Simulated assay, not measured.
Amino acid sequence: MTRRGTLGVAVIGTGRMGADHVRRIHQVTSGARVTAVVDIDAERAKAVAATVDGCAAYTDPVAAMAAADVDAVLVASPGPAHEAALLAAFARDLPVLCEKPLTPDAASALRVMEAERRLGRRRVQVGFMRRYDAEYRKLKALLETGQLGRPLMLHHRHRNVAGPPGFTSDMLISDSVAHETDVTRWLLGQEITAVTVLRPRPSANAPDGLQDPQFVVFETDGGAIVDVEMFVNCGFGYQVQAEMVCERGTARIGDGHAMVTHMAARWGGTIAQDFTERFADAYDREIQAWVDATRHGEVTGPSVWDGYAAAAVCEAGVRALTEGSRVEVELVERPTLYG
Rank of each mutant, 00 (worst) to 15 (best):
A57I: 12
D60E: 09
T29C: 12
V34E: 00
R44T: 02
Q27G: 04
E43T: 05
V28T: 14
V34Y: 04
Y58F: 15
D53G: 13
A45Q: 05
A42K: 12
A45M: 09
Y58A: 00
V34S: 02
V34R: 03
P61W: 09
V52K: 05
V37R: 09
Q27C: 13
P61G: 07
T51H: 09
D53F: 07
A36D: 08
K46T: 06
A42V: 06
A47H: 11
V48Y: 02
T35K: 05
G54H: 12
R44V: 03
I40Q: 08
D41I: 13
A32S: 05
R33S: 10
A50E: 13
V38H: 02
A56G: 06
H26D: 09
K46S: 08
K46N: 11
A45K: 07
A32E: 00
A49M: 06
A47S: 15
T35F: 04
E43P: 00
R44L: 09
K46Y: 00
V38S: 00
A47E: 06
R44A: 10
A57M: 12
T59P: 07
A47W: 03
A47R: 15
D41K: 13
A57E: 06
S30R: 15
D41W: 14
D41L: 14
T59I: 06
V52P: 07
V52I: 14
A57H: 06
C55I: 06
Y58E: 00
A49Y: 03
A47M: 09
Q27I: 01
T29S: 10
Y58D: 01
I25W: 00
A42S: 09
A57Y: 03
A49S: 05
A32C: 13
